[in-house]
Simulated scan of single mutants.
Amino acid sequence: MNAIVSSASLCLDIAPYLDVAEVRRVRPRVDIAIADRAWRPQVEDSQRDWVASIAAPAFKILRARRGDAACKAFCALGTGAGLDALAAIELLGADVIGLTDLFPDVVEAAAGNVRRNLAVGHEIALHAGAGDLLAPLRASGVAFDLIYENLPNLPLADAAEVEVDKTSAAFLAPRGETTPQAVRDGLLTLHYLALVQAHDFLKPGGAVLSTIGARLPLRVLTEMAEAAGHAPSFLAFWWKAQADADEVIASYAQWQKQGLSFHFYPVEVLEAAFAGLDLEQAGRDALSIERDLRSYQLDAAQAWRLHRNGRRIGHTVAALLSEPRR
């Protein structure tokens, strides 16, 4: 992957980033502006980048299952730099795009990235707004075939922190909505609320695709979706080395001191467990893979100590497809 990164932008060849032979709907080389408060995509290492390693393969699986016309209207919830939307335009053939994120400057940059990097002559309808989850798009009346979210888990204490924080793992807390205890204990609040709100924004037959770092049992994710009124399934299952390990693992270790439970794995264990699998097959076998990995689990404090001693630490990742129960 050929990428050039500066302090406020990056340029990359999109075909290798999406692992396709060529692109038709977006420019072959994209120019991405990154707002100050946006999470920087990890394009230098595709295994660490959420869109390249998880979202794009999941989009391909979904299009193969549902057909070319099934995901024409796409929403990227908490889009960041907008690469998830560009991936949906190219891989799903989406021509109606919704974008949301917390801050106006982040949404403005993402919308500009999408418009600027369309292939010559290719047009889309773009709806973008800043604010809480799907709320910024309510006034537009737009509905979607697929809502994609890779929302943060770890709550921050106050707005001053979220103003300067650049880790995709963190969001502003607390929330006032009622959520199931397991959702709160799993730090899954935003994922759950997105699933609840999605009922008002999905077309008939539409779905939510959540990509979530599975640092807790997979059954908690399916129970979350069921509690939000959806039928869940695992579209894909994979693993990632923990990004921003100093901050993120330490944060989970602190939450563990409050009685919550999370797990990680040594990277070499994950590499061996997933060797020879593709994401779709691993999605079908997610529960059995998780069961086979159980003896290698590290709690957050153990993972932190090993990380401090130079071990590479990772976690599994679930692509959870949630379809509303009608």
Rank of each mutant, 00 (worst) to 15 (best):
L12R: 11
C71S: 06
V30D: 03
V26C: 15
S53E: 09
A70K: 00
W50N: 14
P28C: 04
R25K: 11
D49E: 10
W39R: 13
P16G: 15
Q47W: 06
K72I: 03
F74H: 01
V30T: 02
C71E: 02
D31N: 12
V43P: 06
I32D: 07
D19V: 12
S7C: 12
W39L: 15
I32F: 08
I34E: 03
I34K: 05
A15Y: 13
C71Y: 02
P57S: 06
R37D: 04
P57M: 09
I32C: 01
I34P: 07
D68L: 08
D19G: 07
P16C: 14
I14F: 14
R37Y: 03
L12T: 11
A70F: 00
V26R: 05
I34G: 03
D45M: 04
R27Q: 11
R48S: 05
A64E: 04
R65F: 05
A38S: 05
D31E: 12
A73D: 01
V51T: 11
C11L: 11
I61P: 00
F74E: 00
A56L: 05
L18R: 08
W39Y: 13
I34Q: 08
A52C: 08
R27K: 12
V26Q: 07
R25F: 08
I61V: 10
D36I: 15
L10F: 04
G67L: 01
A21T: 14
D68P: 10
V43N: 03
I32M: 07
A38W: 07
G67C: 00
S53M: 10
F59I: 00
I61E: 00
L62Y: 04
S7N: 12
V43D: 05
A52E: 02
S7A: 13
D13C: 14
R48E: 11
A69K: 11
R66F: 09
D13T: 13
Q47P: 06
I32Y: 08
Y17C: 11
F59R: 00
P28L: 03
A58P: 01
A15N: 04
F59D: 03
A69I: 07
L12I: 10
R63D: 01
P41L: 08
C71M: 02
R65A: 09
S6P: 07
D31W: 08
Y17R: 05
D45C: 05
A58S: 15
E44Y: 05
L18P: 06
D13W: 06
S6Y: 07
L10P: 04
I61L: 02
A33I: 10
A8W: 07
P57Q: 01
E22M: 12
D13V: 13
I34C: 03
A70R: 05
A64K: 03
R65G: 02
L62Q: 06
P57A: 10
Q47A: 15
V51M: 06
E22K: 14
R63M: 00
A70M: 01
S7P: 13
S6E: 14
E22S: 14
S7D: 15
S53R: 15
Q42H: 08
I14W: 04
A21Y: 10
I54L: 15
R37N: 14
E22Q: 11
V51S: 09
L10Y: 10
I14D: 07
V30C: 04
E44F: 01
